[in-house]
Design a protein around this nucleic acid. Structure first.
Length: 255
DNA sequence: ATGGCCTCGGTTCGAGGA
């Protein structure tokens, strides 16, 4: 079973790329972020036609998350319980016996912004809720755009990023907190090339020059981590016409 | 060396992203 995460930066724009990537067959479950679509406009019929089961939670213009799967999706839940939030950033569902959480962590904008405080509050609520979820679901995974580069090696130029969001101590402490709960960063279970990133700025020819960040992650519960045989960043879609600024991350789980 | 894009809503620019 392959599970993946991909911030598509508008599903309306990226629908052809998603269909192409799905047809190429690299995943059984894909968590999508930044769909930027109200639920009424979600292309459910087109995706169903392509063989996808879908669950989605969206809003106009911003945010929006979805899960697409070859297998049926059960027990769909949107949002973090007890954390009222207008922004559609979290969706959970069970597929093939695996509990899948799709998330889009707030960006935070800058360290002195209210949006940064919202980001930290969101992460606190996430961790509080997850402590319970880990007890309820042994086979649990969390995939998404975390908007956190966990370590300096996940940043193309750490010195240039000092003092910015995505790399701050408080954000990284939240990420480590998830690892301390028992989650494993699937990508780091394996030897990886240096300067592996999942996002590159559209500006400055960022992709061509590999000026990127690794901010899209797959975290696995201990039981799932034990079954993980590979985790890769698939850079192919970032080279296609009109790409998202993020590219998919894919983990392989043995049956 | 510097700055360099893309998406959306809604008009032709501002906000937001990372």
């Amino acid at each position: 079973m392959k599970i993946a995460t991909w911030n598509v930066n508008s599903l309306k724009v990226r629908l052809p790329q998603l269909l192409q990537w799905w047809a190429d067959g690299p995943a059984d479950v894909v968590c999508l972020q930044e769909t930027k679509l109200e639920d009424a406009n979600f292309p459910a019929a087109v995706l169903a036609e392509a063989g996808m089961q879908v669950a989605f939670s969206g809003q106009k213009t911003y945010n929006g998350v979805a899960i697409v799967s070859r297998h049926a999706l059960h027990e769909v839940q949107a949002g973090i319980p007890d954390f009222p939030d207008e922004q559609k950033r979290l969706l959970a569902a069970t597929s093939n016996g695996v509990r899948v959480i799709c998330l889009y962590v707030p960006n935070g904008q800058s360290l002195d912004s209210d949006k940064y405080q919202y980001k930290l509050a969101w992460l606190t609520a996430l961790r509080t809720w997850l402590a319970d979820e880990l007890k309820r679901h042994e086979r649990l995974c969390m995939l998404g755009d975390f908007n956190i580069a966990p370590e300096d090696r996940d940043v193309h130029d750490p010195a240039a990023w000092v003092g910015q969001v995505l790399v701050s101590d408080a954000e990284r402490a939240h990420f480590r907190g998830l690892l301390d709960m028992g989650f494993k960063d699937a990508f780091r279970l394996f030897e990886q090339p240096e300067k592996s990133f999942s996002w590159w700025d559209y500006r400055a020819a960022g992709f061509r020059r590999n000026l990127g960040l690794r901010i899209d992650h797959i975290l696995l519960s201990p039981a799932l981590a034990a079954t993980c045989t590979a985790c890769i960043i698939d850079k192919a879609p970032r080279k296609w016409e009109r790409p998202s600024d993020h590219t998919p991350v894919v983990a392989t789980l043995a049956a």
